[in-house]
Design a protein around this nucleic acid. Sequence first.
DNA 1: GACTGCAATTGATCAATGACAACTATTTTT
DNA 2: AAAAATAGTTGTCATTGATCAATTGCAGTC
Lengths: 267, 267
Amino acid sequence: MSNQSMNGFIGITSKQPASVPLASSGTKSASRPCPHNPGISCSNCRLSDLCLPISLNKSEIVQLDEIIERNRPLRKGEHIYRQRDEFRCVFAVRSGSFKSYVLGADGQSRVTGFFMPGEIIGMDGIGSRIHGVSTMALEHSSICEIPFAQLERLSHQLPNLQSRFFAIMSNEIVKDQQIHTLLSSYTAEQRLASFLLSLSARYARCQLSAERFILHMTRSDIGEYLGLTLETVSRVFSSLQKKELVLVKNREIEIKEMAKLKAILGE
Amino acid sequence: MSNQSMNGFIGITSKQPASVPLASSGTKSASRPCPHNPGISCSNCRLSDLCLPISLNKSEIVQLDEIIERNRPLRKGEHIYRQRDEFRCVFAVRSGSFKSYVLGADGQSRVTGFFMPGEIIGMDGIGSRIHGVSTMALEHSSICEIPFAQLERLSHQLPNLQSRFFAIMSNEIVKDQQIHTLLSSYTAEQRLASFLLSLSARYARCQLSAERFILHMTRSDIGEYLGLTLETVSRVFSSLQKKELVLVKNREIEIKEMAKLKAILGE
DNA sequence: GACTGCAATTGATCAATGACAACTATTTTT
DNA sequence: AAAAATAGTTGTCATTGATCAATTGCAGTC
């Protein structure tokens, strides 16, 4: 709704699934013109050691590069895809951040995940060929689009890529299991502590500060993700601040006592 | 502890990771002697259309069969592997059922999943090469052991197998996301209803009754899985019985009003 | 700068579920 | 078969976090 009216032109949404022409999958060499991001490729991407290319050699990365489409950036609120859309691609976050969510029978949304640079989005659709969630940019963001049929074909040629993708999916399963235990046994405070520590570690992974960062999601998003109400999220932030473990100024977070924050999870 | 003292001989545990000799991976033809299950192979397994072999052709199934090890059955309480064990294999449930669980810092366990025939266990270890959970038989059960290195090698030769395994892992991710939303927004009654319906559907999938089945896990296991105490699980079962939606007699469940049970999730 | 709408905070109250405890039933061991 | 251990039920009370409501803060727009 407002998502589409806020743009002059519409992004990669369900309304025009085939609107973005794929690269011809021919066998020309490394440098391929990319309309929105000339000169950007996996080979020179500073995320390449946390993203898909890990454990690939130079020539393999070049081949991977061939099938990746780098589209124009997405604005805050734009969707990569929506629940029930046909699955065609997985996506790597190049910059910015995203949330995935489902709409329940009653119409209210539940957030299933947040995604940061170097992370892969959309793997839930591989088995069913349908996206089970919607995924939306939380800020101005850019992604690499990877047509899955081509990724499968290439994985078949490159054992390293096959292994890498198995590993990425496995890590996603582990992450989901950790959230399972979080949701089934942690208190509100433990959930928030765990959430902040997770964000911190992921920011650190992409060379950003582990102590100071911006929450690009709302309190409500966080609550939907952690199984809490937005009021509880707000209250716990206030309480953590009163204890001087963190400093919360709107969306800005500063972790003052990393060790004590971890100690909350300790027992 | 009691797990090991209860057996005269010890199963596939961390204590003897290499105790079960793998099949030689040579290229001999279909029928391969299997010490504990002569004559059993994927080709004649009645689960073959819900397990790994889906979408493989005859000759591909024979090749898959080559790398699968079918060990002696496990007794109730025996482990397939334990948390922190080195990852080497994934496992398919042939009969019986299993639970996976983690032990928290405080020593109490949290159940991360239940597994029924035709389902694949152990994929959490692929990325990290370490099992993040322990997996235990809930009853007398048997499994197919699939050395992952060989599975990867074979997947590289058989595109259908590669696709199939991507799909299985994706389905696992979807399942985990559904539990995420269950834990973050459902009431105790909705969780139990959803749990019973899930079991029912999975029993139906392997040709068993969708209306009558046995719970092989304890109330405590169910509670740990659903983020409830065992007392709450017990109370909700009693309440569902009072409403005549189900009949609960110890571990025996009979679903009397499938539609009404689904309606609990409806709003 | 005032207006509008969304996001966040804080307070008061309530309800669902947890914790503890007593008791019963079932299974396992001897 | 008896004894012991484990599993399950039910009751009471306590607590966490949800709900409802009022207020403040902030960002974008006219």
